[in-house]
């Protein structure tokens, strides 16, 4: 018995139910250590402890590095603006029958050659664009939208739990935008402060918004793997738009 993805999540969710595995870990096991080494959780905590072992060293101020850093920070970001509250009381097209036809079902996207394996849990995502008049109109995947458009999202999720939202420009690597909690069933994507939305201000061309969700916490690498190749325990959905100049 060694720790794997499933038992790892079980350990955190309900440690009492995994006493046997805890005992096994306590005894020390190279296979399990290899698994733990590859997990990103606690990496920072481990490093904090290890780096505090040695006496601190006097290090001269890195003025040049600071100047480079501050220049980088002042450079405008290409990340789309994530809106915390799009509009109070927004009703996203008022229905529950909003299902995009091209939500992935069995085949992975061709963005990760050589990586195969379907996602078993399909999360359906639908986007809506805010019109100049302030109303929202439903988009079909592949629809063209103007640069600067504001999108809101509705999901139909088979799971309840944490979700991660990503944006993918063309075939670039997906970039995480937000971490949310979702319910099972059909509802709008929301953050603590209101409806979740994305402003496509600096975008151009094909833009895909991905939503990955699960019943238990999962890390960003697992989410990316689910997007690129499918992971049975994670539900994945997407919607794609073409942003005009």
């Amino acid at each position: 018995m060694h720790v794997d993805d499933a038992s790892w999540h079980r350990l955190w969710k309900d440690p009492a139910s995994a006493r046997e595995l805890l005992e096994h870990l306590r005894e020390g096991c190279e296979t399990c250590d290899d698994f733990l080494a590859a997990r990103p959780e606690l990496d920072g905590a481990v490093d904090r402890l290890l780096l505090s072992l040695a006496p601190p060293r006097a290090v001269p101020l890195d003025e040049l590095g600071w100047r480079r850093l501050i220049a980088k920070l002042k450079k405008p970001s290409s990340t789309p603006r994530v809106l915390l509250a799009v509009a109070a009381g927004l009703v996203l097209l008022g229905g529950t029958a909003l299902v995009l036809r091209d939500v992935r079902t069995t085949e992975p996207e061709p963005t990760a050659p050589g990586v195969k394996g379907p996602a078993k849990l399909v999360l359906e995502v639908v986007a809506a664009r805010r019109t100049p008049a302030g109303a929202f109109e439903q988009l079909r995947s592949g629809d063209r939208v103007a640069k600067g458009s504001l999108l809101a999202f509705q999901v139909s999720s088979p799971v309840e739990g944490p979700a991660r939202v990503f944006i993918q420009r063309g075939r670039e690597a997906p970039e995480e935008l937000a971490q949310l909690l979702i319910r099972s069933g059909v509802h709008q994507l929301e953050q603590d402060t209101g409806l979740f939305g994305v402003a496509l201000e600096d975008e151009r061309g094909a833009v895909t918004v991905w939503v990955v969700a699960a019943e238990a916490p999962f890390d960003v690498n697992d989410a990316v793997k689910a997007i690129t190749s499918g992971t049975p325990s994670l539900a994945v959905g997407r919607v794609e738009v073409l942003v005009d100049q």
């Binding site: 944490p162 916490p217 890390d219 960003v220 690498n221």
Partner: peptide, 8 residues
């Protein structure tokens, strides 16, 4: 491309 969000 997505590691700036740190694992929970």
């Amino acid at each position: 491309g997505s590691v700036d969000s740190v694992p929970p």
